[in-house]
Design a protein around this nucleic acid. Structure first.
Lengths: 158, 158
DNA sequence: ACTATTTCGTCAACCACGTTGACTACCTTA
DNA sequence: TAAGGTAGTCAACGTGGTTGACGAAATAGT
């Protein structure tokens, strides 16, 4: 029992999840850099997806990403500085500033999605489609993504 | 095809892995705080595991965690400050400083392992043991944990 | 035995990403 | 029109990383 426990301790589970995530992100990042997006940092793809093709505001972006509006604002600052996002005044509400993607940002997001699809395809080749589906279904069942909501409208995957 | 793609885009995979990781870590953290370890930050459990019961040095800790020795040193600083680690001169090599766990650190590590085991048990209840085993096996197969080596000696899981 | 090289820890500067609290400007509602 | 809520920003801070430089100590090579 001790040996069975030590062979598969609970510590492994979080580490493997983290390793899986980082493997994907590192591969994405390397490929993005190769495709002309070296500025894009690991989380920026998710930020772009959360901004969406319809744009959003800093406060709402923060809610979508599960972070404070200040943190969202700072992230937007960086992505504006490197040319992925635009921030313009909302003509209908002088308090709000609309955050929209530049063409460069749209290109980065599109490429991110393509690369992620290709990486998922690699997993399917290695594990078989049922196992990858099962992995996603199981994670969907047990992982509580309270801290982000990327079920945003405007995502152009379909 | 567009609808099938958008129903299960590659973007979901990394997000689900991250959500799974963060779910575990958040639950661990909440439970650790309840058990008298509110100081322990999310990654500290892994740091303690990487230190191991036999202790190590800052440089080796960095190698085990896949971070620089400077970053490892700073993390050790914080864990020394809150009483989880000790740093003492190595009598056999005046350059080295041995990093060892205090009793409080050992307690935190032991509790972390127990809580992780219990959380894994919850996943088993929700998904069935085969699915959790499959999830771990699959991640082990496709995730490349180049950036950490927690296959360290001295871990007292067994 | 002495020099040259490597290794260990640390310092300093910096960056990314997050937090909370305070504040202004602006809508909205009573 | 006065009161209250909301959007964005500033400032200070914490955490977890990075690189580069450097002194002190060990080790290797004459």
């Amino acid at each position: 029992m001790a040996s069975a426990d030590s062979a598969r301790p609970g510590f492994q589970l979080p580490l493997l999840l983290l390793a899986g995530f980082r493997t994907l992100i590192d591969d994405l990042h390397a490929e993005l850099a190769r495709q002309g997006h070296p500025e894009l940092r690991p989380l920026h793809g998710f930020v772009l997806q959360a901004v969406g093709v319809d744009g959003t505001t800093a406060t709402e972006l923060g809610q979508r990403l599960g972070i404070s509006k200040q943190a969202a604002g700072k992230t937007v600052d960086r992505l504006v500085a490197v040319g992925y996002l635009d921030r313009v005044d909302d003509p209908r509400d002088a308090r709000r500033k609309l955050i929209t993607m530049t063409p460069h940002g749209v290109d980065g997001l599109r490429r991110s999605a393509e690369i992620f699809d290709r990486l998922r395809e690699r997993w399917v080749e290695a594990l078989g489609p049922e196992r990858v589906d099962a992995l996603e279904d199981d994670l969907r069942a047990v992982a509580a993504p309270n801290w982000f909501r990327l079920d945003v409208p405007g995502w152009f995957g379909g």
